[in-house]
């Protein structure tokens, strides 16, 4: 079975985000960028399926700016076999919407014919939590979202999902789109020899136009602002002082 993993280049999760003063967006120039952490978990899961003999090829796909090459190389260094970069924007500040990404992925999938798509449940930049579900809808496939456990069982996948009430286990027909949550696995670090090897792995470059997909946004960004800040608080000296402050504030 071939596994396809979409990966997104996003601001590193440790970076403090700076909103531009003119309200036009978030400053991404000269900022550390990384693989979206959820996508890293998806890549790791695909590698584990391959190691377990349940997958035979892992194709990683990124849609965005040309710099996403680095993102794909990271996934190749972890253990993916082949990469496809779909150039869809020139400016690093352009965020291609999940609907357009899903449409491009659907076209890639028509050509690649994978048995499973493993995607991160959300990207930590736009926090939209949508691409996997949208892709599944466009393909007419089943979906298993927010997975914390995944088992391939013949032509079905058993997915344990993290939901508001606890955990839900479902069985989905393959091919399926499974979106992964934090506790599915802990991604490996790429070793230096594997980073070197990854440089020689195939990376195909395409454009959104090659797939005939219109990526113009459906959501016009009116402005981007700083969230409300909280007034400074105080440090109390003791448990008793804390209790009396809470009583004064009417909180207990």
């Amino acid at each position: 079975m071939k596994v396809l993993v979409p990966v997104k280049r996003v601001i590193d999760y440790n970076v403090k985000v700076r909103v531009k003063a003119d309200g036009s967006g978030v400053d991404l120039a000269n900022v550390k960028m990384s693989v979206n952490p959820f996508d890293e978990i998806a890549v790791e899961e695909a590698i584990r399926l391959k190691e377990a003999g349940k997958a035979d090829e892992i194709v990683v796909v990124s849609i965005g700016v040309k710099q996403a090459q680095e993102t794909l190389r990271t996934a190749l260094a972890m253990g993916a076999d082949r990469a496809i970069l779909v150039n869809a924007a020139d400016d690093v500040h352009t965020d291609i919407e999940p609907l357009a990404v899903a449409k491009i992925l659907a076209k890639v999938i028509e050509e690649e014919d994978p048995g499973l798509v493993l995607a991160g449940k959300q990207a930590i930049d736009n926090d939209m939590n949508a691409t996997g579900q949208m892709l599944s809808a466009l393909l007419g496939w089943s979906q298993g979202t927010f997975a914390s456990e995944l088992d391939i069982d013949g032509d079905k996948a058993v997915v344990t999902r993290e939901v508001d009430g606890g955990l839900q286990t479902i069985k989905v027909n393959l091919p399926a789109v499974v979106t992964v949550d934090l506790r599915l696995n802990e991604p490996r670090y790429a070793s230096l020899p594997n980073i070197m090897k990854a440089k020689k792995k195939p990376l195909d470059e395409k454009t959104a136009a090659d797939y005939g997909v219109d990526t113009s946004p459906r959501l016009e960004v009116v402005k981007t602002t700083e969230p409300a800040t909280r007034a400074a608080g105080i440090i109390v000296g003791s448990v008793d002082e804390l209790v009396s402050k809470l009583k004064e504030a009417g909180a207990v």
Binding site: I11, V17, V19, V26, D125, D127, V221, T224, E226, P227
Partner: peptide, 8 residues
Amino acid sequence: IYAGNAVQ
């Protein structure tokens, strides 16, 4: 967006 570090 960005874990609540910006509002769009």
